[in-house]
């Protein structure tokens, strides 16, 4: 009965609403245009063109002729030893920073969720890296790692842990771990903030029930807190992974990819190909390859998490 009544009323409302709707549509378009045009011209368009460039032999010269070369850039990429080296370093970097940063941030978030003294102070301190210009973060850590004038060498030698000055950012085997530490320091605030908010969303009653049942702290963390946090954890680690694999500025300032390419992340490699050697097409191919890898990794990761939930 009600159904038929509604059905008969619908077209009437529509007839009355239509002129208003189209006026509204025009108004919407008019209000949107100023924001839409720059985004379309300066980022959506370039992105699409960038993907197209991956299939061309574009060079940096103003008058160079560009022609379509199909998949040949991808073939070159697959046989390019430098690319694979950079790709391997990128994966090591992105996975270690994401995982270690997550563990460190979870620990910090758990502490900040407790009723401890100095909590407010630590919270403020933990936000500082978020606001700092990445370039300043890089310069600051260069001062810390400085072989002669840096505090790290003198502290470690003072504690008897080192007997000579280490050139942290120029040592073949130490540079990448040293850079990873900076990555963790830089990215901790966002991860901590998100995890802390997640923790505060875990219902108190669950913990109290666990307590009554005699579950230990560890057990409550493992079977109550973690499962409750899962969606938040999956989201923030995915985002962190994407941000990390696309990282450029921080490492560029720290090492410029050196020593001997030991910290040349994929984006540093692509930047050099494009703006030092002028291979625009090849650099774009590298970008597309990274997108494919990112989507594959995220697909696997998120897919697995979803399956485990259900």
């Amino acid at each position: 009965m009600t159904l038929t009544a509604e059905r008969t009323r619908e077209p009437a409302a529509d007839r009355r609403g239509r002129p208003k709707k189209s006026r509204q549509g025009r108004e919407t378009l008019l209000l949107m245009l100023p924001a839409l045009i720059p985004v379309l011209i300066f980022s959506v368009g370039p992105l699409l063109y960038g993907i197209y460039l991956a299939f061309t032999d574009a060079r940096s010269g103003r008058n160079s002729v560009t022609s379509f070369v199909g998949l040949s850039n991808f073939g070159d990429l697959l046989t390019d030893g430098d690319f694979w080296a950079s790709f391997r370093i990128g994966l090591i970097w992105a996975v270690s920073v994401t995982v270690l940063q997550f563990v460190a941030a979870l620990g910090l978030a758990l502490l900040l969720n407790e009723n401890l003294r100095f909590r407010a102070f630590t919270r403020v301190l933990a936000m500082v890296p978020w606001a700092m210009p990445p370039v300043v973060i890089g310069l600051m850590w260069r001062l810390v790692y400085h072989p002669n004038a840096g505090i790290l060498n003198s502290t470690l030698q003072g504690a008897g842990l080192l007997d000579h000055n280490v050139d942290w950012l120029n040592d073949f085997s130490i540079a990448l771990p040293a850079v990873i530490v900076v990555g963790i320091w830089t990215g901790m605030p966002q991860t901590t903030v998100v995890l802390l908010a997640g923790l505060q969303g875990v219902p108190r009653e669950l913990h109290e029930a666990g307590h009554v049942d005699g579950a230990t702290t560890w057990r409550r963390f493992w079977s109550i807190t973690l499962p409750q946090l899962r969606p938040v954890i999956v989201t923030i680690t995915s985002l962190d992974f994407v941000w990390n694999i696309n990282q450029f500025g921080l490492v560029y300032v720290l090492t410029q990819g050196g020593p001997g390419g030991q910290t040349r992340l994929p984006m540093l490699f692509a930047y050099e190909e494009a703006f030092r050697y002028g291979f625009f097409g090849y650099a774009a191919t590298l970008g597309v390859a990274i997108v494919i890898v990112v989507l594959a990794v995220l697909g696997l990761y998120i897919g697995r998490q979803m399956r485990e939930v259900s």
């Binding site: 980022s43 370039p46 063109y49 960038g50 993907i51 103003r62 696309n246 984006m267 774009a284 590298l286």
Partner: peptide
Amino acid sequence: GWVLVSQVFPFILIIIPLFMVLR
């Protein structure tokens, strides 16, 4: 959608064409 997409795509894909546009 654009906020999300712009997170996933590496800057190099945008910056090369953007550089050409600006040039």
